[in-house]
């Protein structure tokens, strides 16, 4: 077992990540919010708006998980 001493640190950052991911998923899962995203125009960077937002939301959710791992790893909480 690692002899690192696991220090108790603030959990606020995990709550922030959790809330941000939840908000992103709300835009995906709740029909009235998703309808804001679910349209073709305007095209953004060559993507229809829906495809661009699907990419943006997916990337955000993915980066949050990478960040969560990074913080836990740095704190020795894995």
């Amino acid at each position: 077992m690692s002899d690192k001493v696991v220090k108790k640190k603030g959990k606020a950052v995990y709550w922030v990540i959790g809330v941000l991911v939840a908000i992103a998923y709300l835009f995906v899962l709740v029909p009235p919010l998703f309808s804001l995203v679910n349209r073709v125009e305007p095209f953004v960077l060559g993507f229809p708006f829906s495809a661009f937002m699907i990419f943006a939301l997916g990337l955000f959710i993915a980066v949050m998980l990478v960040l969560l791992y990074g913080i836990q790893n740095r704190r020795g909480e894995l």
């Binding site: 495809a51 699907i54 990419f55 997916g58 990337l59 959710i61 993915a62 980066v63 998980l65 990478v66 969560l68 791992y69 990074g70 836990q72 790893n73 894995l78």
Partner: peptide, 25 residues
């Protein structure tokens, strides 16, 4: 170990976005 297990999270989410969208689009 749990550390090795969770370390996969450095890549799998980003691969999920890039790979899935490139092919499903």
């Amino acid at each position: 170990s749990t550390k090795e297990l969770k370390a996969s999270s450095r890549f799998t989410p980003l691969v999920a976005v890039a790979f899935t969208l490139v092919i499903t689009f």
